[in-house]
Structure formats: structure tokens, C-alpha cells
Simulated scan of single mutants.
Amino acid sequence: MAPAQPAGRADRELPWTSLPPALTPLLVPHLPEVAEELLDAVRLDVPVYARPLEGVFGDSIRRGVEVALTRFLQLPGTQQPALMGDDRRVYEGLGRGEVREGRPMDALFAAYRSGARTTLRSLSRVAMDAGFEASVLIGLAESVFAYIEELSAASAEGYALEQSERAGERDRLLDALADMLIRGHVVEDSVRSAAAAAGWPVPERVVVVTLDADRRVGLRSRLGDRALLTSRPGDVVAVIPEPASPTACREMERVLMGRGAVIGPGRPWYAAPDSLRLAVMTRDLLQRDEPAGNRPLWVSEHLVELVLNSERSVVEDLAAQRLAPLDELRPGQRERLGATLLCWLEHHGQRAAMAAELNIHEQTVGYRVNQLREVFGESLNDARTRFELELVLRAGFR
């Protein structure tokens, strides 16, 4: 038995407690005709339910009406809640069904209101014909609308649960799709089937972004539905359609600002592993001492450094060959001449530009260049030698 409640509160929350139990046997025989009137009214009042009540859709609507009316007529004179157990699950199921049908809750709520009006009109007519007083009719009206509120609440809960579960399932599908792409799953039919199941349009080209694992919070919502996210040990990986314009690039920078992100080069979707490989290589090879608030690092802006650092031992061998003439110099002199040589190569020997960059007088520039010619001799006249010298000096060798 339900615990006793103050009369005022019980009357306010459960208005059917004041209804005479004699209403139930009086109204039960009329349920079939009330149900048909209700269904006809809903089809007329709510256009989305105007279609024939067939299949799963028709079964669920008829079942909802049957359960609603049967349960309601069990309530007069009791303190029972509007819905219990299986009955409540019926209306949660109707809410879930609206999500599956792709509709907002407005239509179902409108159907409940229409059904309440029809039910009240039909039941009130029977009660009046039986001689019940106006106070009973008022209590009946209060009970019907309180009952409909409970049905609406149960359906709203089912709707929310279905949305939540679907969002979680979609996130799982998107994560799995991201994992397929970055692992190099190149069976196109499989990828496109997985993308269709996740509701993700496959772009022609993508960029792959890597960032620290602790920077994932809030990233999915900021990147939007077109981004795929997955986690790996130590980092988070995002697969994103390649930005198609400078504006789109700036927007991506804004979203990734301060997250320590490295953005791989654009590749066809089936070559996403290559974009990831270069992003990771760039992250590992380039020392990043920038503050956390700085812009993300674009691999496309560091291709030379990537080339120079990807085979460091080979560049070391080349540096040993090309910079051997400096080996006999004192460390300070070697450093100065190395910087002057790189500046000379970059500015094609223009003394004014070299003096400005090195912050020395033009005569000093001339003196150092003469020293370089003495050290390197005729090799500075060879285009290939100059290219290799610039390459190893840009790689940081002196």
C-alpha cells in the first residue's frame, strides 16, 4: 500500500483518488468505441498520423491507445501512480519511435492532447448519462489531463534515451571509421559502408591531425560532425576533410589553437595513413618550444626541415664532406664563417642584404667572403656544391 499523504497534496498530484470507483465498471464497456473515436480524432488533428495504421507504426499506436485507456480506468478511487512497469515502457517506446521516424516530439504531444480531449468528451458523456454530478465531471477532467501529462513525460524520457543511445552509437561508429582510415583499410566498399552507417560523407581528400591525449576534451564539438576522432596510446588523432580555402584553414587553426596540434598534409582519403605518418614525423623531429597558446604546426610549412631531418645520418655524412674545409679553424671562427656562408648563399652574394642580416659592416662582409673563398677555393663556383652547402647549413650544421 502506498504511504499516506496529506489530503491536499494527494488530491493535487493524484486527482483520480477523488473519483468514485463505480466509474470503472460503468466506463469499461465503452472502451472500444472511445478508442476508435480517439484514433479518428488524432488522424484528423495531427497530419503526420493521418496515414493508415498498418505495420509496426499502426501496432504501436493502437497498443498505446489500448494501454492508455485500460490503465486510466484502473485508477479511479486509488492512489496508484499513472503508469507502472510495462505500461510505462509502452510510452517510453512511443517516444523512442518518434526518434526512429525522424520526428520531433511535437507531433506525439499534439496526439496526446487530441486524445485527451476526445477521451474526456466521450467519458463525460457516459458519466452524465449515468447521472453523476458536476463535481465528478470536473474530477474526471483533472484526472484525464494529469494522466496525459504522465504519458507525455514517459514518452519524452524515451525520446531522450533513444537520442542519447544513438549519439553514443554514432560516436562509436565514427571512432571505428577513423581507426579504419588511419590503419590503411583501403577496401573502398568496406570504408564506404562504414561511413554510411556512421552518417559520415566520405570526402575526396583529408588531413590527419595528431595532438596530445589530454587535449581531446571538447574537441569533437569544436571540430564538428565532419571530423573523425580516435585515440591511440599517448595521442589523439583527427581525420578531417582537407580545408578548401584560406578561410577554412584559418578556422581550423582557430579550433586547434593551443592544443599542440600537428596537421598532416592533404591526401586522398585512402592515403590518410601517409598524412598521419608525416604529422607524427614532424612532431617527433621538430623541437616545439612554443607556448601552449600558439597556432598548430602545419606539415606543409615545414617540408624542407622534414626532408633534412628524416635521414639525419645521411645529412651528417654530407655535412662532413662539404664542411671539411672549416675543420682547421677555431670554433668561433668556424661559427662566424658558417653563418656568413649560409647568408651568402641565401642572398646570392648581395653584400648590403648580408650586412643587414648579420648586423655587420659591408666591409666586414667582404673580408669574410674573401676568407670563405680562400678556405673553399673554386668549389664555391660549382652550383651543386653550393646547393649541398646550403642544405647542410640549413640543417643546422656549422
Rank of each mutant, 00 (worst) to 15 (best):
Q5Y: 14
A7M: 08
A10M: 04
R12Y: 07
W16P: 09
P21Q: 12
A22Q: 15
V42W: 02
R43K: 13
D45P: 05
P47G: 01
A50Y: 08
P52D: 11
F57C: 10
S60H: 14
G64L: 10
L69Q: 05
G77S: 05
P81E: 11
P81S: 02
M84Y: 13
G85D: 15
D87C: 00
E92D: 04
R100W: 00
E101F: 09
P104S: 01
F109M: 08
S114G: 01
R117H: 03
A130G: 09
I138T: 10
G139M: 02
L140A: 02
Y147V: 05
E150R: 12
Y159W: 11
E165C: 07
E165Y: 07
E169G: 07
D179G: 09
G184Q: 04
R192H: 05
A196H: 13
G199R: 03
G199S: 06
V202K: 06
P203G: 11
L223R: 10
A244Q: 12
P246F: 00
G258S: 08
R259Q: 11
V262T: 15
S275M: 04
M281P: 03
L286E: 09
D289W: 08
W298M: 10
R312E: 12
V315F: 00
L323Q: 03
L345D: 11
R351S: 10
I360C: 08
I360T: 10
Y367G: 06
N370Y: 09
E374W: 04
S379F: 02
L380N: 09
T385V: 14
T385W: 03
A395V: 05
